[in-house]
Design a protein around this nucleic acid. Structure first.
Length: 560
DNA sequence: GGGCTAATCCCCG
DNA sequence: CGGGGATTAGCCC
């Protein structure tokens, strides 16, 4: 059998054999003539608008060209002119196929016929395309169910006059095609993403070649790290310079000179003035518990260093407390004095700390407490914490360098650790290590000075100083009316980058840790105590004071 | 030569 | 046995 006979056999009506016509006569592939009516109508009428119907289907793309071989053949089957146009060539090709397929059935659907004629070259496929109508049906079926079961395939094969295996192949290939399409789509998306990232990468590289400052928009000369490093180097040089001067002073004071030092001592003193007006007595310990064993670091007695530190700090505090303009300038609200930093640097031969922000303020106030009691409170870490609950979260005396002289706090030097706080969740607690030195300057005149010491004890040299108290503290002078005049100086420096930006203005104006706050708190606490002391201490019906607060104040009052 | 499609081969569950 | 991956064959551009 050949296609010629198949086509000629119009009574059979259907060239269904198309691919397998060699062995499958019309009668076998399309049983009976029942198919002929439907098939003749649906399969062989030329597609009106094939493209619109199949444009979405990859498998049916080839069908967009109805003049191609398959369609031509189908058209021919419908009675069209097979010699029309290029049809002649195709016809001859088909004839080749036909002649081949006539005897070659290796890949034929009916395997049992495979060796019917074995004197022909095997494995030669015939070229064949399903008709647009068949494709359309298959596509619509595929949309509903990409995996038809056997029953569905059988039904479809009958309806389309295709072998069930053909239907099976078609669905298999269609799924493969669908998968390939999806992969292509994904690849396209990935390529797009890749191009985008590549462009982004290029722009970042370009930006890195010509860095601009995010803040000023100008060219950035240095990266953040190197700026920080630069600041650290400058600060380090400054500290080394200060250390040299302090060691020289220590040498003068103690009668020996330290030539070499590599101590990691960081001094919070902003001045290098010699203490001058204060001399330690030979028995500086004053009969009080002897100081702890001298700590020697790199050949330097740390105790002597601390003594000198205390002296210079006290000297600075007194000068700050006693000077007026131009060192101090009244603040706008008139409630405190603000330090004239330039004058300060001239007076104390200080250098401006690089990368740090300094805050210095001075406030005076009358406080209903006598100097001895106040000194006692300041030198006792527990009482000090209770006195300034909103500023000091916690404090401990870590070391006593000197207990004072003759049973008093005069000359007492101690190392303390404290957590300074601002009652705001925005500002974290600042941990400071500092030296506190108490000295009586005259009858009824005392001064207590604090100055930060960082890494002295640990000798680690690696701690980060967030906040450092430069010589700060108070000078208290007894008044005749039971009050005393307290002059509080608060001088600190911060790494502004480590302070919450909302609090920078407050810090700069001293509203967080400044002298005003210390004095106000001191006054408030002492007034409460005075009230408690003058009224009935046992009165428990004052609901304006919390039980805890009352307890705390009673404790303080009883100690006074 | 590469894309598309029908069909085949082969492996695996 | 069917599904799916790999491959082949044939055709077209």
């Amino acid at each position: 059998m050949n296609f010629g006979s198949l086509f000629d056999n119009t009574t059979g009506g259907v060239p269904t054999g198309l691919a397998y016509g060699n062995h499958t006569t019309a009668s076998t592939v399309i049983p009976g003539g029942a198919m002929s009516h439907i098939a003749a109508a649906s399969l062989f009428s030329p597609p009106i608008n094939t493209k619109s119907i199949y444009s979405s289907s990859g498998l049916s793309l080839a069908l967009e060209q109805p003049e191609r071989g398959t369609s031509m053949r189908n058209n021919n089957g419908a009675g069209g002119d097979i010699f029309d146009g290029s049809g002649k060539n195709r016809r001859s090709r088909e004839e080749e196929h036909e002649s081949r397929s006539g005897s070659d059935n290796v890949e034929g659907i009916s395997g049992e016929d495979q060796d019917a004629d074995d004197n022909k070259p095997p494995k030669k496929k015939r070229y064949h395309r399903h008709t647009p109508q068949q494709i359309q049906e298959l596509e619509s079926m595929f949309k509903e169910c990409p995996h038809p079961d056997e029953k569905q395939r059988l039904e479809l094969s009958k309806r389309l006059c295709l072998e069930t295996r053909q239907v099976k192949f078609w669905f298999q290939n269609r799924r493969t095609q669908m998968k390939t399409q999806l992969e292509r789509h994904e690849n396209a998306l990935l390529r797009q993403e890749n191009d985008k990232l590549r462009a982004e990468n290029m722009s970042i590289r370009e930006a890195m070649r010509n860095p601009t400052c995010n803040i000023c928009g100008g060219p950035a000369m240095l990266g953040d790290v190197s700026i920080e490093e630069h600041h650290l180097r400058v600060e380090n040089a400054r500290l080394k310079d200060e250390l040299d001067r302090v060691f020289n002073l220590t040498g003068k004071f103690l009668g020996h000179h330290h030539n070499n030092h590599t101590s990691s001592l960081e001094l919070g003193v902003g001045t290098n003035n010699n203490g001058g007006n204060f001399a330690f007595p030979p028995d500086f310990n004053g009969g009080l518990p002897p100081p702890q064993q001298a700590t020697v670091i790199n050949g330097v007695d740390q105790r002597s260093v601390l003594l000198d530190l205390a002296l210079t700090a006290m000297d600075e505090l007194l000068k700050l407390a006693q000077s007026d303009e131009p060192l101090w300038v009244k603040s706008l609200d008139g409630e405190r004095d603000e330090l004239n930093h330039e004058e300060y640097m001239r007076t104390f031969s200080s250098t401006k700390p690089n990368g740090l922000v300094t805050e210095a303020s001075r406030t005076s106030g009358m406080v209903i407490i006598n100097s001895l009691a106040l000194v006692e409170k300041l030198m006792d870490s527990d009482r000090w914490t209770e006195m300034f609950p909103c500023i000091v979260a916690r404090s401990t005396t870590t070391d006593v360098i000197s207990g004072g002289m003759a049973g008093t706090r005069n000359g007492a030097i101690q190392l303390m650790n404290a957590e300074l706080q601002v009652l705001s969740p925005l500002v974290r607690v600042r941990n400071v290590n500092f030296l506190r030195f108490c000295k009586q300057h005259a009858e009824g005149v005392w001064a207590v000075v604090d100055v930060s010491i960082d890494t002295v004890r640990e000798n680690s040299g690696g701690s980060t100083v967030v906040i450092r108290r430069l010589p700060s503290g108070c000078v208290v002078q007894d008044m005749s009316n039971g009050y005393s005049k307290v002059t509080w100086v608060e001088h600190a420096e911060y790494d502004e980058n480590q302070i919450h930006h909302l609090y920078r203005p407050l810090l700069r104006s001293g509203l967080c840790f400044g002298s005003q706050r210390w004095v106000a708190t001191l006054q408030r606490q002492c007034e409460c105590l005075a009230i408690l002391m003058s009224s009935s201490v046992t009165s428990h019906d004052d609901t304006s004071i919390s039980p805890g607060g009352r307890k705390s104040m009673l404790k303080l009052a009883q100690r006074m």
